[in-house]
């Protein structure tokens, strides 16, 4: 049998195995691409489901659903409902850190006077 003929026979006889290997390879490549995209985006750094982030998970802010319909009459009651939701979120924001400079000053880090 000629060279190309042997090659065709080889692939024909093992097409199921080769198909499975090909599918696994494609799945691996897609997984690597997906993980790379996940890593490039800021999603990965904020993913609280990662194994070493139990502390963050346990102290994370509420996940309550707060809905205000985007359609309907805008009467006094609707505005009051909106203001209540708005205020609730703003009050929650007031309790959170503001990235102020104290945490990074030289005294806090104990490396001498501030530059």
């Amino acid at each position: 049998m000629s060279g190309p003929g042997r090659l065709i026979t080889f692939f024909t006889e093992r097409r199921i195995v080769l198909g499975i290997v090909g599918a696994v390879l494609i799945a691996l490549i897609m997984t690597v691409i997906g993980l790379k995209l996940y890593d490039l985006d800021d999603v990965s750094r904020l993913d609280v489901s990662l194994p070493n982030r139990e502390d963050i998970r346990s102290s994370e802010g509420g996940n309550e659903v707060q809905k205000f319909d985007s359609t309907g009459l805008l009467d006094e009651k609707a505005i009051a409902d909106f203001q209540a939701l708005f205020k609730k979120n703003r009050t929650a924001l007031d309790t959170l850190g503001k990235f102020d400079g104290d945490a990074l000053n030289s005294d806090s880090l104990q490396i001498g006077p501030n530059e």
Binding site: V48, D55, I56, N89, L93, L96
Partner: peptide, 19 residues
């Protein structure tokens, strides 16, 4: 600590944006 602040602030900022 900043990560926690970012997550919680982000949650509230997004909620306010939707509102």
């Amino acid at each position: 600590s900043d990560k926690l602040t970012r997550i919680n602030r982000g949650y509230r900022y997004e909620a306010l944006l939707k509102l």
